[in-house]
Every structure is written in structure tokens, then in C-alpha cells.
Design a protein around this nucleic acid. Structure first.
Lengths: 205, 205
DNA sequence: GTCTATATAGGGATAGAC
DNA sequence: GTCTATCCCTATATAGAC
């Protein structure tokens, strides 16, 4: 490719994206090479040409999910508005609630958390989220929008957990309502008035 | 058995408990009949004598996990103390954080949430938890321990989500710290003073 | 780079002896 | 009720042709 930047083949990209989708819905053990090939529309041999094996391909797919989620997080937290407004915007982001978080899903996979290399993209993504939330909390406190007694790191962890846990509650009922209740419960606890709960954004994460 | 009460065989019990443990750690697809037999110390034929197949055995294991968690929830919320004290006690319950919740784990399994019968124990358990938490919130509000503007159902959902989501954050870092931060972040938001954060209890859930 | 063929292991279940 | 033997299918990977 022009400019010396390496360009992945379409086939390789399709394998990564197919794996990413399957991983998201069915986890590591539930994602078979056969299913990947069928979903990617790629032949048997190509997979082992581009990747050393399943875990190598899974790692590439994880990294893509991590990039996408981190980009979305940074987009919201580098956006307009006060610290509290950005927190509210992130909490109210449109999400495919019943599908859940493509990165959080990976944290439930024993094969992934047991391997430091496979776990790294998940760890880093949650670290980015926690940093963005913490900074926004501190900023909101400085502006008098949030109680000064809140600890930014603790508050950030609680908010991230509400989102991740909200997915579990929602799936248990096969309804988005428990997720929405949890998010609005968190907004109540933050003291955000109903009028300030303005949704933003697009994709799921 | 005396009294007409049906008594499960030891073999059957061991199969259920072995399946329950595997399901907790590895999920539905990751739990194979062979592994169940090895862990239960039971022979091949016994399994298909006592159960129609894998999903039948999984259902029995789920019901046991659901019973255990519901019993623990009811124990905490029927215990002593004010509404807020019982909420704090539940949030600070000792848990095997890196293992996670035996019931919440099931909510992440596509094979389980896709089947109404397999999903029922998870749904019911979260319903029990939500009811206990909601009632405690309302009671705490009546006693002036919590802000009267909080909505009990929303607050309950947020607190349940913090616990479930806290497990995901902890596994991502392979450390219990993110879980503890999330819990204490929730306690901060509830306005619980550090002195009132007294741990109780025992088992994981 | 992609294809087909092949290999080994294990998953999930059944049959029938004891 | 429990055991061993057996069955068919799929997961994961390799080999080698094209």
C-alpha cells in the first residue's frame, strides 16, 4: 500500500470481524472455527494462513472491540458540556442492551481472563473508562455539580459497574427495563434532575 | 423415605453439585458431560439414568444455585438492623469476588437466556433480590436514613447492578480491588458514613 | 493465498450387559 | 442403578495440491 502503512487484507478483516461478532454473542468456547468461516464467508485454509490458530484470531478480535469501545468512550468524554453532563451523556448512551458489552462479555470468559495476553485488551479498556469517568467526576465536583465528598475513583467504579451489571439484570428478564432502572437509579443517586437527563450518541458498547 | 418425602440419591446430588460448580466457572458450553462425571465421581451411565440429558441436569443445578442465593438474600434482609443497615450488610457481604455470582454467571450464557425454562431460576432470583432491596430502601426512607427523592425500584436495580458489574471489573484486573471500589462508591452515593460500613456474613453468591 | 482432504480428540447420547 | 461399549457429530488443526 502507498505510504508504507500495512494494509490488512479484506479476508483477514472479515475473519476478525466475524470472530468479534461471535465472541460477543457466544464467548470463547462457543466460538468455533467452522462458525467463524461460515460467518466470514471465508474458506478453511485462509484462517490458518492469516492466524496461527483460534486464540491468535480471538486476540485480534478482542483488540478491535477494545479499540472501538475506547474510541467511543473518548468521544463522549472529550465532547462538549460540563463534567456532569458528560457523565450523564455516557450513562444514557444508546446501547444494544440485550446484546451487552462486547468488551465486558470477554471478562466473563475463563479462557480469556486466565491468559494475561488475552485479558489485556479488557483490562486496558476498563482502565480508560475508569480514568475518563474519574476525571469527569473530579471536574463536576470542582464545578459544584457533584457532592465534594464523593471519591472520584470509587464513584467511577460504581458507575461502570452499574452499566456492566445492568446488562446482566436485563438479560435475566430479556427486557431492557432493568437496565434502564439501574441507570436512572444511578442518576438519582448522583442527584441529576430529570430535566438534565438528555440522551446522546449512537452505538452499543 | 419415611414421611413420604422424596429423597434424592447421593449420586444424583453429586451430579447436581458437580454440574453447578462447573456451570459457575465455565458456563453452559464449557461444561461437558465428561467433566461433570469426573468432578462428581460418578459413572457414565448414572447421569443418563437420573437425567434426560445435559440441559435437564443444568436446570437442576441452576435451581440449586438459585435456592442458595435466594436463601442468603432473605437471611440478610430478614436480619436485624434498620433498612439502611441491611442494605449495607448485603453490599458488604463476603464474596468470592474473582469467581463471581453463581446465578449472575448464568445470565451471560446464550443457551440459558434463550430458553425460558433455563432462564427462569435466574429471573426469579434477581426478582427476589430486587424486592428485598426495594423494601429496604423504602424502609430506610421512612426512617429518614435515605433521601426521600430516591425511587426504591431504581435504587435497588442500581445496587444489584453495582454488585454484578463489580465482578466483571474485578475479573478484568484479576483483583478484588475494582469490586471493592465499586461497592464503596455506591455506599458513598447512598451517603453511608465510613463508620457505618460494617461487614457481615459469609458465603459467596 | 486459498482450496480440499485428512487427522485426532472430545462432546453428547444410546444400547445393553450386569 | 451403574457399568462398558459404541455411535455420530463437531472442534481444532495440519498437509499438501493448486
Amino acid at each position: 500500500m502507498v505510504g508504507g502503512v500495512e494494509r490488512s487484507s479484506d479476508t483477514k478483516d472479515r475473519l476478525i470481524e466475524g470472530t468479534r461478532q461471535l465472541l460477543w454473542d457466544r464467548g470463547y468456547v462457543g466460538t468455533s472455527p467452522t462458525a467463524i468461516l461460515r460467518r466470514s464467508g471465508v474458506g478453511q485454509g485462509s484462517m490458518y494462513h492469516h492466524f496461527r490458530g483460534k486464540s491468535d484470531l480471538v486476540l485480534a478480535a478482542e483488540r478491535r472491540s477494545a479499540e472501538l469501545m475506547q474510541a467511543q468512550v473518548r468521544e463522549v468524554f472529550s465532547g462538549e458540556g460540563t463534567g456532569l453532563q458528560r457523565i450523564v451523556a455516557y450513562l444514557l448512551l444508546q446501547r444494544d442492551v440485550l446484546r451487552g458489552c462486547s468488551v465486558g462479555r470477554l471478562a466473563g470468559d475463563p479462557e480469556i481472563v486466565a491468559d494475561d495476553e488475552l485479558r489485556a485488551p479488557v483490562r486496558e479498556t476498563f482502565a480508560v473508562l475508569n480514568r475518563c469517568l474519574s476525571e469527569a467526576v473530579a471536574e463536576a465536583q470542582a464545578a459544584g455539580e457533584l457532592d465534594a465528598r464523593l471519591r472520584p475513583e470509587e464513584t467511577a467504579a460504581a458507575l461502570a459497574a452499574v452499566i456492566q451489571g445492568g446488562y446482566a439484570l436485563a438479560r435475566a428478564e430479556q427486557s431492557t427495563e432493568p437496565f434502564d432502572r439501574a441507570i436512572h437509579g444511578a442518576l438519582d443517586l448522583l442527584g441529576v434532575p430529570a430535566d438534565d437527563r438528555v440522551p446522546v450518541g449512537a452505538r452499543s458498547s
